[in-house]
Design a binder for these strands. Structure first.
Lengths: 210, 210, 210, 210
DNA sequence: TGATAACCGAGACGGTACGTCCCGTCTTGGG
DNA sequence: CCCAAGACGGGACGTACCGTCTCGGTTATCA
């Protein structure tokens, strides 16, 4: 982190030399990439519990010591591999129709969670539950951007007057996302498009009789 | 399961002798209780990942073979210990005021999840994510009753005309519960009473501008 | 050790039950034998430094945990394997001629040390130098019996009047054995029959001019 | 070795330029000294097996690459550090009384071996047992001079007529030194002055009844 | 007076073995 | 037939050290 801030500093000042120490052989970027790729591959093939540090090392053509030099444990490697592969958060288009946009978003999410991504996400949450640091990474790198993006979309709709002024949009996103995660993690209901439809409809219209 | 069906059979018929093949020493009920108590205690103390079959056996004063004679693996023991300790599902009173009842329910849930119970539930879900059979037990013994109870309460309110006719109450409960589980499992927001309040308000009133 | 004393107790008293507890599955003697055989085999094939606990386990068809359950480390396993294979100390015949007997003994020793046994002994001493417990085993199980036997033989000759009364026979054996070990361990001279001859002659006759 | 032969060449001939290709920075003598000092210090503190190349490097304020640039492996460093610190072989005075001289010599040796030097020597022998090159260095740089010196002393006595003509003095020194090394390496007896006394007496007088 | 070549520190790298831990199975003797 | 005690095979874990490598930077000598 520190040296990244340093090298990325766009204003080359005299202070540069303070952090550009970097004595010794620099970290092998190729090894890092190979590890993340191997971890992601094994994650998809063997599931979260089936991945082994030894297997990652062998697959990546890397020594186990190198793994432990840069990541404290298996959770950390898997989590970084996951966010490296799934970090990008493609904001959907804002068509002006909050209902349609929300529907598209939630349908996409349920469809993804119903497939291979669902298995992977489950694994990452299991990992997060056992390791607070992994949890923090998952939250910051994967969850937060998507969540914020959804809140933003709702906020824009609210400013357009489509959503009532007093609504707590953050809690609303928790309810939308939470429902999907709930079904994913507990398996208590199917992740089908109709579920997304009903969920959006429920959130938008509310339960109370007018 | 099999012999349970047998011993629990309330109708003592002539068929009894078919399953009451209890030649030999019967299962020690005291050992079973000691195991469940020990598992629950260790679960609370060491967290889910920290519990060991060996530790359960020693704490319960029981041999490891006895554990594996009656449960197929660690998840099963922990899950049964959990539902034995937390199985009862006390339905709250139905005061006739949906909003107040729902608020009470969700506040209770968030408060519980914010405490020791939250840690335990997290552990059980982690266990469920790694073991489908444990997941089934968790769902059937813990989750389903509470979920059904909540759906029932909303259904009664709907019949009373407090909730609009077309609302999908099952999805609504998924959203309510899901939001709380979401925060519990991802740690992405605090489990405070205000969260319960906002959640109920959002679900009841909906997001759309009237 | 303790339970050995116990089971070997020839007088079956009431106290027997105190130590014949032996609860639990008894130690597998076949595993123990397989381990010692495997260790001895690997020792001969790969030399002392080349043996691996993992290799011993695999060769013996045994789990690594079983190794560490009964021996604290590699040295201990190797040492026990060594003494199990080379523990027997065949006392040579006492012909009544000290010189001849001594010569036969030292020639046999140098011949053995010049061959494969020399390599093995070197390894065991290296192991003993790094691990005091292994040293104690080597001393008690291998060295002491042979040394004592040699001292005894000299003592008998002394009683027969062939060796002068004041001679310190223990120190003499140290000199005889030490010289051979010295050449073995430092490689500073060859272990040939002539060396044994000269050594015995020197010790018997002494250096001083009469 | 090569460049040592070169720099040590006392006869500065025209050939000098062949090996004095010292284009570039010359070897840092201070680093070399620091390494040997550090190795010797760690050897005394942690014992032979406890010394690490990394530790030597850090202690000497030197990089690991520098170690491996000048020595092929750990044994070589330790051995050179040992002989650098203990290479000098102070020949004792030749008083004309071979018995007294021998006694003084062996008493000094046992006393030294009973102390810190004994631990160090043990370590070097352990190292030598695992590495033939280290063994050669130990033999040539440490052992041989002392051994030769002792043989010389005995030879002088023999020429003076104090020792019988036919005695094999080399074997006698092996017996004297070997006995002390034997006790040091196997720990089978104490290294006390009385041992030196008895040893010398035994060797000088021999065992046979006259 | 540079240029250049070998030095140096720092430290990451592949590799190998270590000793620990836990799982789920088994083998005893005893109730 | 149950139970306690506890040994067993299996397999992943995280650590430690080895000897090699790549950096950026530092000297002496040669051109």
């Amino acid at each position: 982190m520190d040296e990244k801030d340093c090298t990325n500093s766009e204003h080359g000042t005299d202070l540069e030399h303070l952090c550009s120490k970097a004595a010794g052989r620099p970290r092998s970027e190729s090894a890092r990439q190979a590890i993340l790729v191997a971890a992601d591959h094994l994650l998809a093939r063997d599931g979260c519990g089936g991945v082994t540090m030894e297997a990652i090392a062998v697959t990546a053509g890397v020594s186990k010591a190198t793994l432990y030099r840069w990541w404290p444990n298996k959770s950390a490697v898997l989590m970084e591999a996951f966010v490296a592969a799934n970090g990008a958060c493609c904001a959907g288009p804002d068509t002006g129709d909050v209902g349609a946009d929300l529907l598209r978003r939630m349908r996409g999410m349920t469809a993804a969670f119903a497939g291979a991504m669902g298995v992977t996400i489950s694994g990452m949450i299991a990992e997060a539950l056992a390791d607070p640091e992994a949890a923090a990474v998952f939250r910051a790198q994967y969850l937060a951007p998507r969540w914020a993006e959804a809140v933003d979309a709702l906020t824009r709709a609210q400013k357009r007057g489509q959503i009532r002024a007093g609504a707590d949009l953050e809690v609303a996103v928790d309810a939308l996302y939470g429902a999907v995660y709930f079904r994913l993690l507990t398996g208590h209901g199917p992740l089908i498009p109709e579920f997304a439809d009903a969920l959006v409809e429920t959130l938008l219209s509310g339960l109370l009789e007018k």
